[in-house]
Amino acid sequence: MTAFVVRRLITALVSIVLASAVVFAAVLAVPGDPAAIILGVTASPEALSALRTQLGLDVPPVERYGRWLARLVRGDLGTSLQFQRPVADLVRDRLMLSVALALGAALVATSLAIPLGVLAAVRRGTWLDPLTVLASQLGAAVPSFWLGLLLIILFAVELRWLPAGGFPGWEAGPVAAFRALLLPVLALGLGQAAVMTRMTRAVLLDVLRQDYVRTARAKGLGSTSVIGKHALRNAMVTLVTMLGLSLTNVFIGSIVIEQVFALPGLGRLALSAIGNRDFPLVQGVVLLYAGTIVFVSFVVDVSYGWLDPRIRYA
């Protein structure tokens, strides 16, 4: 198991380094002088050269990448041009909100999708199955931000049960935070639930078709017990992958949802950074998102190996 984890860890690290190279190279590809783009054409030569030094543009690209990577390892993401504060600090302030949003949405999605998917698979042949399939297909086609707009109209503007946007801050207490995040979490989670319902159903149908399940059924085991003990356990491996996938989906999806609900998370930070040509901030945030995706897939792989020992040796 340890060897497997180490192997996967190395792969993940290589992926992160490659991702950082992509992020670094993107800014390298900026047409023209980034310093001039940031400061505009009226900038004095002194200001330009000062900014070039601050951005590290006065050293060759490879060396610059090396330095950047070295600082990255120490958790230094550079300094935001717009806010004149370390990118790492800015990111830390916003990260919690985006993570809470993503986890909440993943929770909503999972707790809806697994029971619905299982039900649809087990009740195959009844009206419930095609209905679930249709609903999940339709749900997967609904843009989350559009759903967010509808939720605002209904629950914030018409019924006035919940705030329409904005975030009071964590220190305002768990109730206020919950109220602020409920609609965004639903907007993000419901679409994902639709996707996951279909996957759960498909996975379970596959497992139910397997011989050992048939045998267990033939031996007279009750339906609940068959599904609980045998089918679900064996479907676990695929479900974990699915969970990891949906976690990254909602994490990325939160970028748009933050904009709909005016939530001060990482996504809005990135959008404002783009507007202000704040390259270090864009790099930092994008790399954080990419790194999270790599990390989640690493965790998924490891738990995969833990759930199904055969994979470790594959």
């Binding site: 605002i152 914030a156 503007v157 006035r160 919940l162 705030p163 329409a164 946007g165 904005g166 609900f261 005016a262």
Partner: peptide, 8 residues
């Protein structure tokens, strides 16, 4: 969002 926040 400002309007909705005021209403809410």
């Amino acid at each position: 969002t400002r309007l909705a926040a005021l209403q809410a």
